[in-house]
């Protein structure tokens, strides 16, 4: 098992807190394969508005996707990079939204295009690997990865997903929302991918108000596949995790995450695992606002975190890789 990395929660006032962890799976460790997951947590503010971007990627692995650990790292970079690139376009205070409501090219389409460009560029930097020598589609397949994104501002959250993985929101009352419904066309261990020919059309997206807040989870499929029932038992896990955050604080939960994920991989799917948690404060005026704000008891501050499980380098500008 890889050395445990310190998982430091990041505060994004007034949105809440975020922390995450990517772990190499037991089957990957046994075979000497790298972790093919990656995640990034990026926070900032633009014209006085807080912004939080979270990305989770899962490289497909296997012989056909031999560079998918790089593909996953490039995917989280593309997601955060596209957020940064879109900021100056927003134009005015209060007008910023991660995803435009109408008119412009969809955010996830731009992320996909950015990922494809970065794959070609990355291949160009690797000796003996060039899109001139093989078709771009084949190259993209080698880098194939899923991608889950959450973009959060002061009042609402946009989520997008291509391929497998889970995005869940546990509300303070324990109810669970799956903003992006499961893709009923997927069966078995197959998934859609950023490398799919028609990938822009394979994204599933949703937008929801933060309202009463809650705990937002973004996870690669290795985690939910470790439960007896990847849906019902995973929901039990999510609800229980939310209770741990409430009871112990996100800092202690963040510290426990690497050990928990290793345990799930060992006794469950054996796959790489990534879990990013965002503890969302209720927005002013929402039910529970007075009671929940600042209940983690941690000092406010700003920070960023990014981790490429495949070890392919740091993410886009602004983030600081976790210390090992």
């Amino acid at each position: 098992m890889e050395e445990t990395r310190k998982t430091v929660p990041v505060s994004i006032s007034p949105i809440g807190w975020a922390c995450g962890c990517s772990r190499r799976g037991t089957s990957h460790a046994k075979d000497g394969r790298p972790c093919q997951d990656a995640h990034a947590i990026w926070s900032s503010s633009f014209m006085g508005e807080p912004i939080l971007a979270v990305a989770v990627a899962d490289g497909h692995g296997g012989a056909r996707h031999d560079l998918s650990h790089c593909g996953a790292a490039l995917a989280i970079q593309a997601a955060v990079g596209e957020v940064i690139a879109s900021l100056p376009v927003a134009g005015s205070v209060g007008a910023w939204r991660p995803v435009s409501l109408a008119g412009e090219e969809e955010f996830h389409t731009r992320v996909t295009a950015r990922w494809r460009e970065s794959v070609v560029a990355d291949a160009g930097r690797k000796p003996g690997l060039s899109p001139d020598g093989e078709g771009v589609p084949d190259l993209l397949t080698r880098y194939g990865s899923t991608l889950l994104i959450a973009l959060i501002d002061g009042s609402e959250c946009w989520v997008g997903q291509i391929g497998d993985g889970d995005i869940l929101l546990v509300r303070p009352d324990g109810s669970i929302e799956a903003p992006v419904p499961k893709d009923e066309t997927l069966l078995g261990m197959v998934t859609y991918s950023l490398s799919s020919r028609d990938s822009p059309g394979l994204w599933r997206t949703a937008r929801f108000p933060i309202g009463a807040g809650g705990l937002l989870l973004l996870a690669t499929d290795g985690l939910s596949d470790s439960f007896e029932n990847p849906e019902s038992e995973f929901h039990v896990f999510a609800r229980s995790l939310s209770e741990r955050v409430t009871g112990f604080g996100i800092e202690r939960v963040g510290s426990a995450l690497p050990g928990w994920l290793d345990g799930y991989s060992l006794n469950g799917s054996g796959d790489d695992m990534t879990l990013v948690l965002v503890s969302l404060n209720p927005v002013p005026g929402a039910e529970g606002f007075e009671q929940r704000t600042g209940e983690t008891g941690m000092a406010p501050g700003n920070g960023t975190e990014a981790e490429a499980g495949g070890g392919t380098g740091s993410g886009p500008g602004g983030e600081t890789p976790n210390a090992s």
Partner: peptide, 10 residues
């Protein structure tokens, strides 16, 4: 051995 793959190319 079967695991996540890009559905559209498989």
């Amino acid at each position: 051995r079967s695991k996540s793959k890009d559905l559209t190319s498989e």
